[in-house]
């Protein structure tokens, strides 16, 4: 018990002292996940609009599939990306295996269904009368989409933040395709997993606290958005 307590105290000291290793790992985690989130958002915002505003056969089924993929296992995505990008794989020529780039690719695959699904449901939750009103006031298809996004902005933003939250907290994918290389692809979650198995609880705890702090900030942000 005293051992655990001492580890906790050391962890807090590491954070307060802005320990270079801790800060570097946390910064890399944030950078990789933020990049994945921005790329996923750039895919999901227009794609969500296309799916929501058009009628086509199989739309309901497509949305069901997207929602099913919310809980895509991270190791499954890891395996998929690994097979694609390993040196023998079809995309092996890019030579990005075990680099932050491939981690971003994996995270984009992982969070796209979640972001897309939440964006579509935020758009569906807006009153049908909003789109009718916009169209009747002379909005073109694009202008109507923009005003609908504006009306659904809190729900859409919540979807984007949820995507980021899933990206920064996953471990299986980063471990498999990133390789947990110190100073290069080591992120908060992979570091925690490694340090814990090594028995180096101080660093693991410090990183764990930072991760929980990030989760807390995201949650507070979400709550404030939903209260508007």
């Amino acid at each position: 018990m005293t051992e655990l307590w001492e580890a906790l105290v050391t962890a807090v000291k590491l954070i307060i002292a802005f320990d270079p290793e801790v800060m570097q790992i946390a910064g890399r985690s944030l950078a990789i996940s933020a990049t994945s989130s921005v790329i996923a958002a750039l895919i999901c915002l227009p794609l969500g609009a296309v799916i929501h505003f058009n009628r086509f056969p199989g739309k309901r089924t497509l949305i069901n599939i997207i929602q099913t993929l919310f809980s895509l296992p991270t190791v499954a995505v890891g395996l998929f990306v690994f097979v694609l990008f390993s040196s023998a794989g079809p995309l092996g020529g890019f030579g990005i295996m075990f680099s932050p780039a491939v981690m971003v690719v994996g995270q984009v695959v992982l969070i796209t269904p979640l972001m897309l699904g939440l964006i579509i449901s935020a758009l569906s939750a807006t009153d049908k009368a909003i789109t009718d009103t916009a169209v009747s006031l002379g909005a073109s298809g694009f202008q109507m989409s923009v005003i609908t996004f504006r009306e659904a902005r809190f729900g859409v933003l919540a979807g984007l933040i949820m995507g980021f939250g899933r990206a920064i907290s996953e471990v299986g994918l980063s471990l498999m395709v990133g390789g947990n290389i110190r100073g290069f692809t080591r992120t908060i979650t992979t570091a925690i997993s490694l340090e814990t198995s090594k028995g180096d609880l101080e660093l693991a705890l410090a990183l764990g606290m930072i991760l929980i702090f990030v989760a807390l900030v995201i949650n507070i942000g979400l709550n404030r958005i939903q209260q508007r």
């Binding site: 009153d127 009368a129 909003i130 009718d132 009103t133 169209v135 009747s136 006031l137 002379g138 073109s140 005003i147 504006r150 009306e151």
Partner: peptide
């Protein structure tokens, strides 16, 4: 249709306003 629609306007039975 868009061209023609831009010469008309419609007040719905239960009008909605945009959040602005």
């Amino acid at each position: 249709r868009l061209q023609a629609r831009r010469r008309m306007s419609f007040v719905l039975q239960k009008p909605v306003v945009f959040n602005m």
